[in-house]
Computed example of a mutant assay.
Amino acid sequence: MDNEKVRLQLYMARCGVASRRKCEEIISQGRVSVNGSVVIQPGTKVDDDDRVTMDGRLIKPTRKNIYIALHKPSKFLCSNEDPDGRSLAIDLISPVIKQRLFNVGRLDYLTSGLIFFTNDGDFAKKMTHPSSHVEKEYVVTTKKEIPEELMENFKKGIYVGGEFFKMKSYKLNGTNSVNIVLEEGKNRELRKVFQSQNINVKKVHRIRIGNVKLTGINSGHFRHLSEREIKSLLRDSSSKNGKYNNKGNRHNIK
Rank of each mutant, 00 (worst) to 15 (best):
V39I: 09
L88C: 14
G30P: 00
R100E: 13
E149S: 12
I207E: 10
Y159L: 06
K75W: 11
Q41G: 05
S74T: 09
T44N: 03
V6R: 05
G210A: 12
P73R: 05
L214Y: 05
F194Y: 08
V34N: 00
F164K: 13
C15D: 05
K125V: 10
E184H: 06
K240I: 05
S33Q: 08
R7I: 07
K144R: 11
K144E: 04
N198E: 15
L10C: 10
K247R: 12
N153A: 10
R106D: 10
F76L: 10
G216P: 12
E135A: 08
D55P: 01
S131W: 02
I97Q: 11
V181T: 13
K144H: 06
I68S: 02
R228E: 15
I40M: 07
C78Y: 03
G157F: 01
N119E: 07
F116M: 08
Q9H: 15
N211I: 15
K22Y: 05
P42L: 02
F116W: 07
L114E: 04
E25W: 02
V34W: 00
L234D: 03
N3Y: 10
Y244I: 06
L172A: 12
F116K: 07
D91I: 13
L150Q: 00
S237W: 01
F164S: 08
G248K: 04
F154Q: 00
M12K: 01
P130C: 04
R188E: 10
K247N: 09
N119P: 05
R63G: 12
K203Q: 14
N198A: 14
N246T: 09
F76C: 10
I199L: 11
G210Y: 04
K155L: 04
E4R: 14
S19K: 00
R228I: 14
I27D: 00
E25I: 06
Q195I: 14
K171Y: 10
N3F: 10
K64G: 07
Y138L: 01
K203P: 07
S196D: 12
V17I: 13
D108A: 12
L190T: 08
R106L: 11
D55F: 02
N252D: 13
N65L: 08
G56F: 01
V52Y: 00
I180A: 03
Q41S: 08
S177A: 13
G30A: 03
V52G: 01
P83N: 13
S74K: 09
L70I: 07
D50N: 06
F117V: 09
I59E: 01
D122M: 06
V181G: 06
N241S: 13
L58A: 07
N80D: 15
D120E: 08
V140C: 01
N245R: 12
A18I: 03
K64E: 12
F194M: 09
L214A: 11
A89D: 11
